[in-house]
Design a binder for these strands. Structure first.
Lengths: 225, 225
DNA sequence: CCTCGCGTTGGTACGCAGTACCGTAACGCG
DNA sequence: CGCGTTACGGTACTGCGTACCAACGCGAGG
């Protein structure tokens, strides 16, 4: 198996199947491509396809389950501090995953725009993130409706940035993500008469905590002026 | 046809099919019920089923297209007044439809909660309303992201009220709807006394959530000085 | 070397959703 | 009565997804 015998070259069976699927989708469209055709091009049997992917649609959203688990884990890890920032960071996880995928994400985007059933599935997937956020937010906030609005807004902002990037012509989507999240956080900030409650929003992309701290200081200084 | 010949009694063919479908779904579950079984119980042929409903799922969401058109028409009619209130009223249209359905809406809710594919479809349907709202809001508002947040919030609020009613134990859902929409309107109302709201924005991301939390704490301490 | 077990693959058969096509019975109309 | 229209039923087909079974490769142990 490690030595490819005849025509099928490169990568694991799963990878070959995914490449074959996307290529065929581009050539003949999604509905015009049968699972048999995908398996044939990948040089494997039809049964093997359904062993590698649960369904034909699953070829297009292979990492969704993993990503959702990552998001939930991230939220659980931060569950004691209770902040919208944790939600924002979990959402950033999703964005980064798409950015890392690069061209593949764009091809998938084209497919989801043109095939209704795939569009549905993508939307349903996003709703699962929103659900995770909602439940997390509710753990520290009493107002149920407000929790839903928050979770929905984070997802909406994330999707807006992601969509712009997928459509092309965006230099640094993560900066846009920061701006969008800042807008959301500002939206849900406590109103003025309400006493103090200073909302803190961090900007930048520093993986180093000290750098984040510095950015905070800078933001505070800038705001004082 | 107006005179029922043998066993199938009552209403149009469409109604008989829908009743038969929901009854069978309750008895044997959605996946355990075939289209043949539905047609048989309704006393018609299989072909007739697909003439009355585009698909098996369509039996459960029969009025969706009509409702969506109503919503769009409502928005178009109000397109000159340009207000979030118009969106709220259009959303109320959807709520009222469910309330009028009564018990049928509850049965559908039970189904959508238990069958993933139906859940997906319902979510996708809601997304279409959100899309209509978003496009309407964008016609009078420049900020694209803010338009998305508004549309999403209206849908979220609507869904929250509807869900509570579907779960049972809510006396007057329309009053709750009013309250929820008021909260949304308040959320997007222009801020008063903008200067007194000390909103500090942090930007950036640390892969370690604890580090971010620490940075925020540090920023807040610094701010108190 | 053989063979036993185990995991992976491919092939076949089946159930079911959805589509296309055709035959036919019921109805209205001149 | 003849004719067109319409609604309905039946048959056949494509394609996804599942279940089951046979064949092959491969390492462990005799």
């Amino acid at each position: 198996m490690s030595a490819p015998s005849a025509p099928p070259a490169g990568g694991s069976v799963r990878d070959r199947l995914q490449r074959a699927a996307f290529d065929l989708f581009d050539e003949q469209g999604y509905d015009g491509t049968t699972v048999d055709a995908i398996a044939e091009r990948a040089g494997v049997g039809r049964t093997t396809f359904f062993r590698a992917f649960r369904s034909k649609e699953d070829v297009i959203f292979p990492h969704h389950d993993d990503l959702l688990e990552q998001v939930k884990a991230r939220l659980d890890a931060a569950s004691q501090r209770h902040s919208l920032l944790a939600v924002s960071e979990a959402s950033r996880l999703v964005l980064r995953h798409y950015l890392d995928e690069g061209e593949l994400a764009v091809r998938r985007y084209r497919l989801t725009r043109s095939v209704p059933s795939l569009r549905e599935r993508e939307i349903a997937g996003m709703q699962q993130y929103q659900r995770a956020f909602r439940e997390y937010i509710r753990t520290w906030m009493g107002d149920e409706l407000r929790a839903e609005l928050m979770a929905g807004s984070v997802i909406t902002a994330h999707n807006a940035v992601l969509r712009r990037w997928l459509r092309g012509g965006v230099d640094d989507p993560e900066a846009q993500f920061d701006a969008a999240m800042a807008q959301v956080l500002d939206l849900f900030a406590e109103r003025s008469g309400r006493g103090t409650a200073p909302t803190v929003v961090v900007v930048g992309s520093a993986d180093d905590p000290a750098a984040v701290g510095a950015a905070v200081e800078q933001a505070l200084r800038a705001r004082r002026d």
